[in-house]
Design a protein around this nucleic acid. Sequence first.
RNA 1: GCUUCCAUAGUUUAACGGAUAGAACGGGAGCCUUCUAAGCUCUUGAUGAUGGUUCGAUUCCAUCUGGAGGCACCA
Length: 520
Amino acid sequence: MLDKKYSEIQKIEIAGPGFINITLNTEAIRVALENTESVQTIYTGKKVLVEHSSPNLFKPFHIGHLMNNFIGESVVRIMKIGGAEVATMSFPSDMSLGIAKALYIIFYIDKKQDGGKDFPISFEHVKESTEYFRYFGEAYSRGVRHFEEKLESQDDIKEIARKLFLSIPCREIELYDHIRNINVIYFNSIVESLGSQINTYIFESFAGERGVEIIKNNIPNVFTESEGAVVYIPNESRKDINTTVFINSQGNPTYGGKDIGLIDIKFDIKHGGAGRDYSIYITDNEQIPHFKTVFAAAEEINEEWKSRIAKSMHVPHGRMTFKGAKMSSRLGGVPLAEDTIDAVLEEVRVRSGGHIAHLSAEEQEKIQRDIALSAIRISILRARPGSNINFDPDTSLSFEGDSGPYLLYTHARCASLLDKAKTQKLYPHKDTEKSISEVERKLLHYKEVLQTVVNDIAPQRLVTYLFELAQEFNSFYNDTTIIIEGDAKGTEHRLYIVEQTKNVLKEALYTLGINAPERM
RNA sequence: GCUUCCAUAGUUUAACGGAUAGAACGGGAGCCUUCUAAGCUCUUGAUGAUGGUUCGAUUCCAUCUGGAGGCACCA
């Protein structure tokens, strides 16, 4: 490199054992800062399917769904910024013994036997009908308890399950169909209000049918009949997984059986799966052994399936517990997403300063919601996806220092500076005579960080980077007066740094699923 | 019993096998007659234990200790 005398290099020196420091000259850094090319990643130009936010019908949207959605949506947007062509999918659980238990409570105990008339929910106003969904959730956990405590009800519940699995027309199934339809709409409306778009819903019932067919076609080469059920017995070298039932002795697919069907659907031309390069699953980490087992079985089917599994990735995440939210007794102490957000929102309102007081109540509410969601999202995304999160709105950990509101605050501060400058007819403009500031040096690393964030699916690195950038900017802000009357040239250069910081914050926060308001 | 993951300041955590382990909260000391103090500056304090591989280990391997998950008809 010394011989070639690169014009970009100012000096090269040995900096201790194993290290060579290469110092770039200012001009080279300027050029790099102006590079607007999008990042190249291993996902650039690839067709990626992300499965996340899968509801369990009859269970309301709770804190676990929130965690899953936040991680899932960040993965979706990370893939998009990495240049992938992304499709999203959700896999609602619409057929299970648990659902039969809930139906039993609603139909036989509470005697709501009038199909849809008992739950007059219009699709347009589904969000205003949360009381019904709370009731369904309650019925679900009541059903679980009932099944355990009232043994005499078990046969009736199993009968409902049988009708459910075989979709035998009857009044219970009519009720079920109605509840299923409104639940999906309810779920979708929540997910959309959180900023996610689900392109396709594939129901477990649908995947299950296909799963059964595939599994039956692969006895005995992959699956084995045992005690009336169809099981997968892993190779002896696989000590990490166990023999697992894929079709139960009643002939119904289990969770594993449904997932076999789902893999086929995911790569099916009819479902847009032609040429799919990656299939990403976002689930709770208790599913790790499940996916290991399903993948191990699927791989054995044939070469085609083996390549499908090579393209499949499971991104497991931890669990979130929430201190302070009203615990829902209906769900055995699991807080609902709505209650969680409300509890944080309450704290945000307390802290909300005078800067948005002049705005309409509606706008204030919107900004406060953005702040509250940023607090929860950053608490989750600042750590590796696999770690458990204990979210506590009582500690300042979620609002001060390395927090969502801190990043939003820095962004709003930039916006405010640019607004103020505009009133004085001053606009961002780079002055190439000026030396490179620390903030610019930090900005220089953005693309490089993005690249590792995408390649490793590591949102926490983007969060760490944003904390560093925000802190660098805030130090700059404290040390320097940005807008100085009578110094138009200097002011415009400083505004340029402000604008660049704002743009990176805005884009990166968006990538994490966070909307950054212009003021707060 | 088998198996997977995790273990970093008092607490929550970051770190492609690379430089002095980076932050935040908390504790201590400061900074608003000036552009948003949800901010800034200084300070305090950490890689569970014992071995191994390596020029170099928070990172890889082994054993141990502790925590979490999974292990036949739930999802």
